Computed example of a mutant assay.
Amino acid sequence: MQELTFFTNPNSRGRIIRWMLEELGVPYTTKVLEYGGDIKSPYYLKLNPMGKVPAIKHGDLVVTEGAAICAYLADHYADKNLAPALSSPQRGTYYRWLFFAAGPLEMATTAKAYDWRIDAENSQSVGCGLYQNVLDTLETALENGPYLCGEQFTAADVYVGSHISWGMMFKSLEERPSFKRYVQRLESREAAIRANQLDDALVKQD
């Protein structure tokens, strides 16, 4: 069995991958990196030249970027059913919302948080378009079932749900009723609770 190492900081997007790993229920080793410290060490920069977390090392393979890590893990551990089958029409839906969150949603909420100008004058040139359009589009993703792929909980829910939860927490995303219901549903999962407990314990150690 290939060793799976998880590089993270509890005050980071690493929480997404912690949750994903807990949903999988597979063994992994956690390496906590400190901001301003070993996160910029020569060893880690060889793994991820960005000097950011999260990242995983699975055997000799390194995967960075939250959405990519979620997609990779779901495919590698296909028996855990955290992605629709390749032959399923829902596979396209899964990819759509996973990468919608990694692209337009993150861009729009970051622009909102830092008051970057995106308006009718420049929105056609900006990947996310207008903020309200992003939120309206995201809301349509939640219309057809308890999860993004209907009845099946997937890695896309881990990734998208995390972004919605943080967006509402930090006021970069409107607290729409559909968003709140979705997040409450996800946060009640045993793996999500367990993941938060593990990362909260690391925060308390600092």
Rank of each mutant, 00 (worst) to 15 (best):
S178E: 01
A120V: 13
V183E: 00
N11E: 10
A108L: 01
I39M: 14
A74F: 01
T30N: 04
L61T: 12
K112V: 01
C149Q: 10
E174Q: 07
L24W: 02
P10G: 06
T137W: 08
E121S: 13
Y43H: 14
E143L: 10
V126Y: 06
Y94G: 02
K180L: 00
R15E: 11
V62L: 07
D157R: 03
F7Q: 10
E174W: 00
E106S: 14
L86T: 12
Y72N: 08
R185V: 00
W19L: 09
F170K: 11
V134N: 05
G145C: 06
K40N: 13
A108E: 05
F170Q: 09
L33T: 14
A191D: 01
V183M: 00
Y95A: 09
T109V: 14
G14W: 07
A101F: 14
G37I: 15
K180I: 00
Y43E: 14
S12A: 11
Y44E: 09
Y43L: 14
Q90Y: 06
V126A: 02
D115L: 12
E187N: 13
G36M: 12
E34Q: 15
Y44C: 14
I69S: 12
A108K: 03
D136P: 01
V160A: 08
N122D: 04
K31W: 08
L21N: 06
L173T: 04
L82S: 05
R18W: 15
N48Y: 08
K171V: 04
A102L: 08
T154Q: 11
N11D: 11
I193G: 00
V62R: 01
V32E: 08
N11S: 13
T8K: 03
L130K: 07
L138F: 08
E22D: 13
R181W: 00
V134D: 02
G25D: 08
L135G: 03
I69Q: 14
E190N: 08
H163K: 08
S178I: 00
G167W: 04
T109K: 11
V183A: 00
F6Q: 03
V62C: 10
V183I: 02
G59L: 07
P42L: 03
A68F: 06
M1A: 15
E151R: 10
R117Y: 05
E22K: 07
T29E: 10
I17K: 04
L45V: 14
R96E: 11
E34C: 12
K52M: 09
V158Q: 06
Y35D: 11
V32Y: 00
T137Y: 09
R13S: 12
D60E: 15
L198F: 02
R117E: 11
D157Y: 03
F179C: 00
L82H: 03
F100N: 02
R176Y: 01
C149W: 08
E34D: 14
A67T: 05
A68Q: 11
I56R: 04
I193R: 02
Y77Q: 08
D38S: 08
L202V: 10
A71G: 07
H76E: 15
M20H: 10
E174S: 08
N133G: 13
P49R: 07
K57L: 15
F179G: 00
N144Q: 15
I164T: 05
Q132T: 11
L45M: 15
L73T: 03
